[in-house]
Amino acid sequence: MKQKHILTLLVGVVILIAVTYTLTSTESPEAYQEKIEAERERQFKFIRFNAESPLSDEQKQAFTKLNFYPIDPAYKVKALMVPIENKKVREVPLTDGSKERYIEHSYAEFELGGKKQKLLLLQSMDEPDKRNFFLAFADETSGLETYGGGRYINARQDGKTSITLDFNLAYNPYCAYNPDYACPLPPKENLMDIAIPVGEKNYDK
């Protein structure tokens, strides 16, 4: 085979490998770690400095950090979205006794901790992007190492019937920092019977 043809073949193979890698590769552990740490830093800066922070000015002066579990990629799961055929509006109780309206959209089914899980995905009534969902949940750490009123995940549908739930990004509602706020409580479907030892821990006042 002529050298020119060999070179052409090698270039073609390299391009094919590069394309295949691009299409099939997953995020490296280092990149994932950096992404989660960057989000945690963003959360801290918002709570510490933003005018919309739930902390009072006095609290901000004493605020030095948020508390998190170590990052564990095993708690980033790909879930199957099972649509609710007859979608209806649910009045979700808030911590102050009032209620807020959400659309019951679908269930996220996945396996975690050796158990099958099925969590209710809610959607805000005025959500402009219909691929965005709100997940409020409580688990075996709630009221102990994490806020007793549960934690939240903002999730985005990333496939026709799939959604990624990253519990490393679980965060506290505003009322965990300031009881003057009213926050949605997890629906009964999302009271998990396993511990989720990732994400944000209790706010240390």
Rank of each mutant, 00 (worst) to 15 (best):
T164N: 05
E111M: 08
L191P: 05
Y174A: 05
N67V: 00
I17W: 12
Y69H: 08
I84G: 00
Q117P: 03
R151W: 13
E58G: 06
N190V: 00
T24A: 11
L10P: 00
E85W: 06
E100L: 12
Y152W: 09
K2F: 07
V11L: 14
K60F: 09
D126A: 11
L23C: 12
Q61W: 03
G148V: 04
R131I: 03
G159P: 02
P173N: 08
E27P: 11
D204A: 07
Y171R: 01
A176N: 01
D72H: 03
K35I: 04
N67Y: 02
G148H: 07
T20Y: 14
I84K: 03
S106I: 01
L169K: 09
A38Q: 14
F137Q: 01
D139H: 09
G199A: 09
K188P: 07
Y177I: 07
P83C: 00
A74S: 15
Y152Q: 02
T146F: 03
N132H: 11
E100Y: 06
E145S: 15
P54I: 02
D180L: 05
L165T: 03
E27F: 04
N178E: 05
P186C: 07
Y32D: 03
T26Y: 08
Y21E: 09
L55E: 09
H105D: 14
G113N: 08
D129P: 03
D180W: 04
P186W: 03
G159Q: 04
D72F: 00
Q123F: 03
P187R: 01
Q123E: 14
Q61H: 06
T161L: 10
T161K: 15
M81P: 04
P128H: 07
A74Q: 14
Y152H: 12
T8Q: 10
L119W: 11
T164H: 08
E127D: 11
Y75K: 09
G159D: 07
L16I: 13
V198W: 02
T146H: 06
T161N: 15
R101A: 14
F110M: 12
I71H: 00
P70A: 05
Q123H: 08
Q61M: 09
K99G: 02
N67F: 04
Q43H: 08
V89K: 13
P54D: 03
L122P: 02
P29W: 00
E85R: 12
K78R: 14
E109R: 12
A176R: 05
P70C: 02
A74H: 14
P184C: 10
L191A: 13
L55V: 06
Y174P: 00
A155W: 01
